[in-house]
């Protein structure tokens, strides 16, 4: 079992100029590790992270898009796996932090905590699918994962984290949305 913030520290070393779509606990950890203008954290409705990511990937096929989604979020939008599998954007990397809980909403368990997200993504038609539970293996493969032809999916099996502070004013700051748009269109 890994820690989400440790995974993200490793990911941040390789992220380059990719857009990173993240929400809730994943967003809190990501913006702490990698505060950058190309972070997209205004999702508006739980579960739609993967759909925003698909739109960004279609809109800028010349750039990379990385979605950092929680397991509870993906469960709210499981159909997006099928949509992404069908559309098959080559520049989309979809990482799901599987900590088996709705961490931002009190730490309650998700339905069927042992659900096989990687298996679902494979069945939905993702081009490449991974399932990481070991930080060393993730560190070894993350660069390849970010570079290969997508859509790429990976489950990150992580522990529930320490209590987080959710600064939604900052995550949903309109000025950050505006800055993202300018940078993304450049």
């Amino acid at each position: 079992m890994m820690k989400r913030d440790e995974c993200f520290r490793i990911l941040a070393r390789h992220i380059g100029d990719a857009a990173v779509v993240a929400t809730y606990s994943s967003a809190v950890d990501w913006v702490t590790v990698a505060p950058r203008v190309l972070n997209y954290t205004s999702i508006g409705a739980m579960g739609l992270d993967s759909s925003h990511g698909l739109g960004l990937a279609l809109g800028r096929p010349d750039k990379r898009v990385v979605v950092l989604q929680g397991d509870g979020s993906l469960l709210m939008n499981l159909g997006s796996l099928v949509t992404i599998g069908e559309v098959a954007p080559k520049n989309l990397v979809h990482l799901v932090a599987h900590n088996e809980t709705y961490e931002a909403n009190g730490g309650h368990p998700i339905p069927n905590p042992k659900v096989d997200f990687a298996g679902l993504a494979r069945a939905a038609g993702y081009a490449a699918v991974y399932d990481f539970a070991d930080l060393g293996v993730f560190a070894q493969q993350v660069a390849h994962l970010l570079e290969q032809e997508g859509p790429v999916f990976a489950t990150l099996r992580v522990e529930p984290s320490r209590p987080l502070t959710y600064d939604y004013e900052s995550l949903y700051d309109p000025a950050k949305r505006k800055a993202f748009k300018t940078a993304w269109r450049a």
């Binding site: 409705a45 739609l48 759909s51 698909l54 739109g55 809109g59 159909g79 997006s80 949509t83």
Partner: peptide, 24 residues
């Protein structure tokens, strides 16, 4: 044409496209 599984997906996809200066 992008066929989606559920209508709210469209809202997120359209937003991502709008950020990319694409109309949907």
């Amino acid at each position: 044409l992008i066929r989606v599984c559920k209508e709210d997906e469209c809202i997120g996809i359209a937003a991502g496209l709008a950020y990319s200066a694409k109309r949907a």
